[in-house]
Design a protein around this nucleic acid. Structure first.
Lengths: 335, 335
DNA sequence: TTGTATGCGTTATCAG
DNA sequence: CTGATAACGCATACAA
């Protein structure tokens, strides 16, 4: 019924509980003889130390939180996998939570993490306030490159580079009239993409892409087709804020009989698995999602364990273009 | 530095710590006056109770474990979302871990869950032994319909029904020579699918599908194309153990210039999001993944909270066929 | 209704 | 090298 505790082991092994505790923690000031006896009784009895108790005492529960918007968005499982791999290797468990893109839920989750006394937290913030994040009181690593959070460690991909790569590709193909779907209006990651567009277009400000806002989802891209078709002159290419938007757009275009890349080229960002399977396969900018997760976890645990005292740093992972079937030179109206 | 504790609040509010504890737990034996004072000081000071300490005392940490093979397999995020939604509503956090289809890792993770004194666990078992699962010592809900685990609560989809639906569909289209890819050899879920095939074919044992084993992955399906092509007479349809296999197969067939569904029909199982986006879109058997997760979480928490004393039950969620583009009548060789 | 004392299972301090 | 003993922060039986 009640699980074994350290006293049971101590008694069974004929030693004091402190000695048991010592071998449990791998300390060296314990005689080989005692150690052997203790280890064998632990194994025989199948004792599993209570991490809750030790967590209370040590103020460390070997668990970190990971707060993401939505695990069913294919971008995040890869991040998660990277985080878990490193966490696991370094002896931490991962508590996963979805904020559902909601500010209230983000703040609730951080408060929960605080009550749970998690050792640290990795968060892909959507709206959460700095105050709420600070209140957590432990180490935090942010996923993303938003300036607002620069007081925390962060890891993100190079948005400027991504957008630059995508636009350069379209330009090289001769596209002048481009529609950009940077994301939902009023979200920081949307603004980041917009800023990147402006930067990339500094040389030819007259050719700035049209901007249309939509959710980071398939249906967001699907619905954007209407906006696309209402523009004159009609854009010959679409730069999508992420692959899901792009895939929704592909579906919408196909339904209307518009060929890709014949009549319109589509490029995404993220390079999720879907991108290599959809039809046509999607030209997109690859983000090293798994590495981002691993890096975030390493940064966080380094902080937790005090290996780093330096000021917060931001790691921008570089991206690269993956050319597939959804883009072609303008005017090649194979459709 | 050190977070506030219940004593700080008691002192600041001019009451005993037990009274604070009472309002924290929403007990009613406390004067409105004291309650008001305590609540306001809690809010003012931003106190967050330490769940580690209360967990140690109450032997409940309001956290459940979820062990799945691989979160990057699109089947599992949906399950996860269902689990998290219910867990959240009922006041539990979810600790997520990937077993990576490895037996050792499964057992390690269960042992970890035990050390962490999780209140319960939902697991999609791959190889783990009953002994290891029993050793956990708390409530367990299994995802899947494997007979070996019937001593635990379980929720799964009706495999017999899924396979039956898929085969009936192919038969209705006139397919006689069918290749089945039930999964990797020696895994229980593979055996389940095989058994379902035999059951479904009881009426015409002479027309039993050929069986070929492969991993539950895209590359598993991709590689299986070679096996398919080596058969004589060549099958006109393939029943895949899951959608990933099917999608890999689609890719492999396309590479070899074999048209789907013109020359070969392909049907999957799961109905992951990819299935509606790949090319051609995939006919498949829909599983209510989200509901499965929700059901599992509800069953688990009911057990944890003692709402259920009945013997372990198995809930089989029913499935339905989703007909898309990858299947057609035999002989319609549009390719 | 409220406060006091004790224990939850570990770890850390400190003599021995 | 080892074993008592006191925290860790909270919940609860019991007393007031």
């Amino acid at each position: 019924m009640k699980p074994l505790n350290i006293n049971d082991i101590a008694k069974a092994a004929g030693v004091g509980k402190s000695t048991v505790s010592r071998v449990l923690q791998g300390q060296n000031h314990v005689s080989p003889d005692a150690r052997a006896r203790i280890e064998s009784t632990i194994r025989e009895l199948g004792y599993q130390p209570n991490m809750v108790a030790s967590g209370l005492r040590k103020r460390r529960i070997q668990t970190i939180g990971l707060i993401i918007p939505d695990i069913s968005n294919p971008f995040f499982p890869e991040i998660t996998l990277g985080v878990q791999q490193v966490a696991d290797e370094r002896g931490y468990a991962v508590l996963l939570a979805n904020s559902g893109w909601s500010n209230d839920r983000e703040e609730d989750l951080v408060a929960l993490a605080q009550r749970q006394r998690l050792d640290g937290m990795i968060i892909n913030p959507v709206h959460i306030s700095l105050a709420a994040l600070r209140a957590f009181g432990h180490s935090v690593v942010v996923i993303g490159t938003r300036a607002a959070y620069r007081e925390f460690d962060a890891v993100g991909s190079n948005t400027a580079e991504s957008v630059q790569l995508a636009l350069a590709h379209l330009h090289a193909l001769g596209h002048i009239h481009i529609l950009a779907l940077p994301g939902p209006r009023g979200q920081d990651s949307t603004r980041n993409r917009e800023a990147a567009i402006y930067t990339a277009m500094q040389a030819r400000p007259d050719k700035l892409p049209q901007i249309h806002y939509c959710e980071f989802t398939k249906s967001g891209g699907y619905d954007a087709v209407a906006a696309l078709l209402s523009l004159t002159p009609r854009p010959t290419a679409v730069l999508c804020g992420n692959d899901l938007i792009a895939i929704g757009m592909l579906a919408g275009l196909r339904e209307r009989g518009i060929t890709v890349p014949g009549q319109i080229s589509v490029v995404g960002i993220d390079d999720i698995e879907l991108a290599s399977v959809c039809c046509p396969t999607l030209t997109t900018v690859h983000k090293p999602k798994r590495e981002m997760g691993m890096t975030a976890a390493n940064m966080l645990i380094d902080r937790i364990e005090g290996n780093i005292q330096s000021p917060p740093q931001m790691k921008k992972m570089s991206t690269h273009l993956v050319i597939r079937e959804s883009t072609a030179a303008v005017g090649i109206s194979s459709g």
